[in-house]
Every structure is written in C-alpha cells, then in structure tokens.
C-alpha cells in the first residue's frame, strides 16, 4: 500500500510538472482552438464537464451499492 502511495505521488508530481511546462508552450494553440468557429468548442467542453462530473458522482454511488451488496451476500452466506 505504501509502495502504491509513493507511486501515485510520483505520478501526480510528474504530471503536474509536465502540465506546467506544456501550459507555457501550448497555451496559445489551446486557446486558439476554443476561440475558433465562434467559440462553439467552449460549449462542447462545458457539456463534457457537466456529464463528466455527473458520471463521477454515479460511479461513487455505484461503489456504495456494491459495498452494501457484498455485505448482504456475506451475511446470507454466514447465516
């Protein structure tokens, strides 16, 4: 577990360094893309963000349901 945590931290740190470097280089193309065609891609990105957060919440809910299912199965097996 500790090993995993270390790996995860390294990954996050590397990612953030990479992102920070990319930000300077790629800031202009990134913005140009979203400003093109009358800024329609801003709308696309916002619909994507909306459904991404909703899906993340649904995954969280599903994990809770899985947990309850496992507990109930465990209970019925032992009794």
């Amino acid at each position: 577990m500790r090993y995993l945590n270390q790996k995860f931290t390294t990954l996050i740190l590397t990612l953030s360094v990479v992102l920070l470097t990319i930000q300077d280089v790629a800031a202009a193309p990134f913005e140009d893309f979203f400003r093109s065609t009358g800024k329609i891609y801003v709308v696309v990105a916002i619909i994507a963000i909306t459904f991404l957060v909703i899906v993340l919440y649904l995954i969280r809910l599903e994990r809770k349901i899985n947990k309850l299912e496992k507990l109930q199965q465990h209970e019925s097996q032992t009794s």
């Binding site: 913005e31 400003r35 800024k39 990105a45 909306t50 957060v53 919440y57």
Partner: peptide
Amino acid sequence: HVAIVFGIIGMLTGSFWAKF
C-alpha cells in the same frame, strides 16, 4: 448532496466559460 454536486458543476463550467 446532489445539489452540491450540481453547484460544483456550475462552478467548473462557469470558470471555463469565464476564461473565454
């Protein structure tokens, strides 16, 4: 709880829109 999730969506989308 779901309202807070919607609030977070509103904040993220608003922030992205504000950029442009």
